[in-house]
């Protein structure tokens, strides 16, 4: 096989695999795993978005979940009984993404001078501020419904075709999580494509320059302010889009879904996978979404191997997850699939 043929073969195999995945998973593992697949796609989108800020531009952001929240609330408030509005998804998703982008600028503008951990703590504060506002804006005017959250959010409907219920297509029955899977898959692939193109674009090289050496980048004519702001805004847009999808998929959102631990987890995904390297980031997102779920089965494992449950799986699940984080980092400190450029940095160190 020529290299070209081989590439085509891989591509086709991958496409078929991704298309069949939810059908096989639902048949083999159950529908909950299709839901986990859906969430995994959302997290891939988030991780790819955060990677623009942290991986490409080197700006440590611990408040990324705020943009996810902005997108989710934008969708929820405009498509639920909260205000009696029921706008279609093709209005909601771009609006949410755009609004999140604006919030990205809002966060970026005052923090241009900050670096490293100082930037981290300010972004963390920003994330918390957004969450606290969402949690409290039920008085004096009820906007977000406060801690009670927004319920009965419209599912995503594409030209009257609801992803929220079981549908029959071409003689095959698709469950709602499966339908969402295909929709999320398309958007995730677009997000990945955009992120990959960005990396090698003029802007991407400017981000890399800033990451490596801010002073040198400035000296070579890069507008620091605009380039940094663009990174924040771009990253936030991805988050906002994912947030809108999450709201439609879940049907209910409340501020507690957007806490600091979520921001930290998304950061873990990109560092663990390999910062700056899209395949690595995707791998990190998959691992950290699937692993905690897979660890739910340690009880079944014990039953299968020892015959009865020795240690309560709930006691072990997060413990094993913590150990996994440590071990993975110890064995591959640059991430599971490090980016070549970052790897070079390592060697020079």
């Amino acid at each position: 096989m020529t290299a070209r043929k081989q590439a085509w073969f891989t591509f086709v195999a991958l496409a078929i695999g991704l298309a069949l995945l939810p059908l096989l998973v639902e048949a083999g593992l159950g529908r909950s795993w299709v839901r986990i697949l859906d969430l995994t796609l959302l997290y891939i989108m988030l991780a790819v978005g955060l990677n623009i800020v942290v991986g490409y531009a080197g700006l440590l952001d611990l408040g990324y979940i705020a943009f996810y929240a902005v997108g989710a609330y934008c969708y929820a408030l405009l498509a639920s009984p909260q205000f009696g509005l029921h706008l279609p998804f093709w209005v909601l998703l771009p609006t949410g993404a755009l609004l999140a982008g604006v919030f990205g600028l809002l966060l970026g503008a005052p923090t241009l001078r900050l670096r490293g951990d100082y930037l981290a703590i300010v972004t963390l504060g920003f994330g918390e501020i957004i969450r606290i506002f969402l949690n409290n804006l039920n008085t004096p005017i009820n906007i977000t419904n406060g801690p009670q959250g927004v319920n009965l959010i419209d599912p995503i409907r594409i030209a009257g075709f609801s992803l929220g219920k079981t549908q029959h297509l071409f003689g095959v029955t698709f469950s709602s999580p499966q339908l969402y899977y295909y929709f999320f898959l398309v958007l995730t692939l677009i997000a990945i494509f955009v992120a990959l193109r960005l990396q090698d674009s003029r802007i991407g090289r400017a981000w890399a320059a800033i990451r490596e050496d801010e002073l040198a980048a400035q000296a070579s004519g890069i507008n620091l302010r605009n380039t940094k702001l663009l990174a924040f805004a771009m990253g936030a847009t991805f988050g906002g889009l994912a947030g809108g999808l999450f709201a439609g998929f879940q049907g209910f959102i409340s501020p507690e879904s957007f806490n600091l631990m979520e921001s930290i987890m998304i950061l873990c995904m990109i560092v663990l996978g390999g910062m700056g390297n899209i395949p690595g980031v995707i791998l990190g997102a998959i691992l950290l979404t699937v692993l905690p779920e897979a660890l739910r089965y340690v009880g079944d494992l014990q039953r299968a191997w020892i015959g009865h449950v020795v240690v309560d799986p709930a006691d072990l699940r997060m413990l094993l997850f913590g150990f996994a984080l440590i071990l993975m980092m110890l064995f591959r400190p640059a991430g599971l699939l490090p980016s070549r450029r970052h790897l070079n940095e390592l060697r020079h160190d």
């Binding site: 950061l267 560092v271 663990l272 910062m275 984080l325 980092m329 640059a334």
Partner: peptide
């Protein structure tokens, strides 16, 4: 290791 590895 890279700066963020120990953070994880």
């Amino acid at each position: 290791a890279p700066r963020l590895a120990p953070l994880i």
